[in-house]
């Protein structure tokens, strides 16, 4: 019981942070919570089942665990299908990242439940002769909380602001070419569209802190994630028939800086910078050339 409770709690505590990456309010929450409870249940009963030699039960649990692996596939499929309906796509990199995170969270749920139930179970055996078996629940609770905190800390994704400096850039045109400061973004053919960019557009420059961050920013999926999240948070003045207003994040090849041009619904730069800063560094983009010898030698 303790295990079940803490597993569910773990999933719930992680659900709260999800809304931005996957805005599926009531029903998405319900289905993830449901799955979380199943995962928690699995984790909670696995040890008692083994100890009590209920091998049938244990086999069933393995089956459930296998089901959990399909979560990732399911998430990916859903998000992939939703891409069609997004004005600014998440991009394959981001979709994969979100799916991975959901899968991992369910495993964490299972671990939390397992830890809580193990401690409760052992504690019960230990404390029963002393006549105070219920105290073991406290031990289980402590284990559950510990796993949740630890798991959240290690699985927490790094926000972009930790690896790069994010500041405002000026939208400007050289002929028909759209620039943010001195970073080229795209060609805009129609004079009216250029006027609109000049009047309503905002520019953001992202300067990587080191070569690791530079590699991250170079990842196309990472940059699409930045564009998607910025548009999702700030709103966007664009429809299907005006693709020239799609927010784009482009690289300055010489310095590794990235720049984004976007036309948000509200042209406020401060919240836009905050939005960009809170975009997670996606796992597929997290390369660390500086951890290798040739990478370090190339860096200086």
């Amino acid at each position: 019981m303790t295990g079940l409770f803490f597993g569910a709690l773990a999933r719930l505590s992680m659900l709260r942070t999800d809304y931005r990456q996957y805005p599926s309010y009531p029903h998405g929450y319900a289905s993830h919570l449901g799955l979380g409870v199943v995962a928690a249940f699995t984790g909670a009963v696995v040890l008692p089942a083994l100890i009590l030699r209920e091998l049938t039960a244990a086999t069933f649990l393995l089956l459930v665990a296998q089901q959990l692996r399909e979560v990732r596939d399911l998430e990916r499929k859903t998000l992939d299908r939703m891409e069609e309906t997004e004005l600014v796509k998440r991009g394959a990199g981001y979709v994969e990242d979100i799916a991975k995170v959901f899968e991992a969270r369910n495993y964490l749920t299972m671990f939390a439940a397992l830890a809580a139930s193990t401690l409760t179970f052992l504690g019960w055996r230990l404390l029963e002769p002393m006549g105070v078996p219920l105290f073991s629940v406290l031990g289980g609770a402590a284990a559950g909380v510990a796993v949740i905190t630890l798991g959240r800390k290690t699985l927490d994704r790094q926000p972009l602001r930790q690896v790069a400096r994010i500041r405002e850039g000026k939208i400007n045109f050289r002929g028909t070419m759209l620039y943010v400061d001195d970073i080229h973004i795209q060609e805009v053919g129609l004079a009216k569209s250029r006027d609109r960019w000049a009047k309503l557009g905002l520019g953001v420059v992202i300067e990587p802190n080191d070569d690791n961050a530079r590699a991250t920013l170079a990842n196309v999926g990472q940059r699409q994630a930045i564009a998607h999240d910025s548009a999702a948070i700030m709103g966007i003045r664009k429809d299907r028939d005006t693709p020239e207003f799609t927010p784009l994040v482009r690289l300055d090849l010489d310095t590794g800086r990235a720049a984004m041009a976007i036309i948000p619904v509200e042209p406020d730069i401060a919240p836009l910078l905050a939005a960009v800063g809170s975009v997670p560094v996606i796992e597929g983009a997290r390369t660390r050339p500086l951890a290798t010898k040739p990478g370090r030698r190339a860096a200086d």
């Binding site: 060609e187 805009v188 569209s193 005006t242 020239e244």
Partner: peptide, 28 residues
Amino acid sequence: EKVATTLGRVLDSQVHDLGNGVYVLVKR
């Protein structure tokens, strides 16, 4: 400009100026 704008809307595509008097409509 007018024709390109209309075509851009109709075809959900982006107008690019090649700089030599030619506009192309590009769909992604």
